[in-house]
Amino acid sequence: MSSTKIFLKSSDDKTFEIDETAARASETLKNIIDGGCLDGVIPLPNVSSNILPKVIEYCKKHGGDNGSSKKIANGGVDKDKEILPDYDEEEDKREKVRVDELKKWEEEYMDFDQQVLYDLMLAANYLHIKGLLDLTVEKAASMIRGRTPDQIRENFNINSDFTPEEEEEMILIEDEWDDEWAFD
């Protein structure tokens, strides 16, 4: 089963190869595969050729072993524990090492610039790769946490797309919130 290859075509018409097991890490791809629409290449018009390898890399790492990726996603809580009858301490230890390794790998994996982060986030969103989405989103959150909106505008290139009236309204709403929370 693991030998089945799937071909993905990026938005700029480049084709990439991925194992079926790995591809199943993505809900979207899984549905396509299970739906039997697998004739030839799966086009991914929302993912460009410089992001797709990154996605595939993640899937390869996580597609094979659903258990541990779930573990990470659930913050280390292993739901399979009760289900596995032949569960023993040895297994637990190995599992732990694996999780640690995975964490380390993720750390290295996530070492890229903002641009890639957003694209990767969009790709993960589009392909429904929960683990990857969580990873990217968490990183994005840590980048903006605790900053003022002005700082964020400045650092992240955000244009306000509100009309002036809406802008005024926003300020009003914000004021109200401030007031509501002005008790301490």
Binding site: T148, F162, I171
Partner: peptide
């Protein structure tokens, strides 16, 4: 939550 509210004014 305070951050969430603050960032509401960034864009739509």
């Amino acid at each position: 939550p305070p951050d969430i509210c603050k960032f509401a004014c960034l864009n739509r």
